[in-house]
Design a protein around this nucleic acid. Structure first.
Lengths: 201, 201
DNA sequence: CGTGATTTTCAGAATATTCTGAAAGCATCG
DNA sequence: CGATGCTTTCAGAATATTCTGAAAATCACG
């Protein structure tokens, strides 16, 4: 994919912003790239991650055209990606009085972003997987019952052991995720500070 | 992508296996599909995840041809994917005396698989991202120093606050991941059992 | 309603990823 | 060595994903 770096410089005209401003724009661009890259490796479309990065790092509410211009993407792409970000709950729609346009802003609390992403991924990916695995597990005997006939079959019983181990792992992961996403901002903040402290020790 | 379900049935000939065996094969196939699907949504190629699922759920050591046949994939694909799984540390090469072929087997402990995947993803994805973000953070002032000129600039200082929040989140995540991947099997098992218990409460 | 501004949708184009198969590489054995 | 059996590599094909742009839908307001 083509990814051109934007020149926020003095190229051309002299009045293109003060030095701190140029540095800020450059830092934003690099943040956007880094975030986009990360999104891509975790199964989120790069553009979606970039739009999110843009809204987060500028902290402003931007309209579709702002996003299109800054990221060089089409209207359709911007529209669809923004909607998806809203569905994930990490971007919200906003309006300005006397302006028909719709503006978007990103959740500004980093931990809250993570909570929302985790919540959504559990709901969309872990839970359906768990349901499937339970279904598959039952093909080879109900876990509770001790089925004589099947317990005798070494292959089946080994299979069941493996399935049960995987199910436990997913259940625990699911539960841990639920605990985390249910935590209040205060709880998360205190825990994070504690863990951040540990790391220096 | 085309994904055909394999018929492990009595179709055609009568001697195609006992009933438990057919059920086992069906359960394996469905596990493989589910696992492949999950891999795909988490940024791992579907085939790689499927091969891993196959090796895990059968518990056997299989050679390249076994994998090719069961999953209907080409030799090249099988070879590359198996190598990648070995690089991730969740599949190991094995040999049988009097046989030149190479066999592969999957780590059988589910928690250990997760530990290895987490370790690798931290190393490959979180750490480089952290490095990038530190670099970007320094464009707008060194965190420690109180730079008068820049502190005055509201936009820059808000930017720095956001960057610092994101950096803290990633540092804590990284550290948590390291703690988890460093835990012994015994520690993990005890913790998991504890958490599994909590969930029923 | 009618008009103009804005947003959404979606077929087809562009791009990126994954897969194949045949050729090249590498051991091991006779 | 040279043949044999197995593995790896990689260019090009197949497939999946993402993006575009223009048409259709929606909306706000007179």
């Amino acid at each position: 994919m083509r990814r051109d770096t934007i020149e926020h410089g003095s190229a051309g005209r002299g009045a293109s912003g003060t030095a701190p401003r140029r540095v800020l724009l450059e830092a934003q661009d690099r943040f956007i790239s880094a975030w986009g890259q990360m999104g891509a490796t975790w199964g989120i479309s790069r553009t979606m991650a970039e739009i999110h990065a843009l809204l987060f790092i500028t902290g402003e509410s931007l309209c579709t055209d702002d996003v299109m211009e800054r990221l060089h993407i089409s209207r359709g792409n911007a529209s669809m990606s923004l909607r998806a970000l809203c569905d994930w709950g990490i971007v919200t729609r906003a309006h300005r009085r006397g302006d028909r346009k719709e503006y978007f802003e990103a959740e500004q609390d980093a931990w809250s972003i993570l909570q929302k992403v985790v919540r959504e991924r559990i709901k969309r990916e872990i839970n359906p997987l768990l349901a499937l695995l339970y279904e598959i597990r039952e093909l080879t005997g109900v876990p509770g019952e001790t089925e004589r006939a099947r317990e005798a079959d070494t292959a089946v019983s080994a299979h069941n052991t493996r399935m049960d181990a995987m199910l436990q792992l997913l259940r625990v992961t699911d539960e841990l995720g639920n605990k985390f996403t249910a935590a209040s901002g205060e709880q998360v903040r205190r825990t994070a500070d504690m863990l951040a402290g540990l790391e220096d020790a």
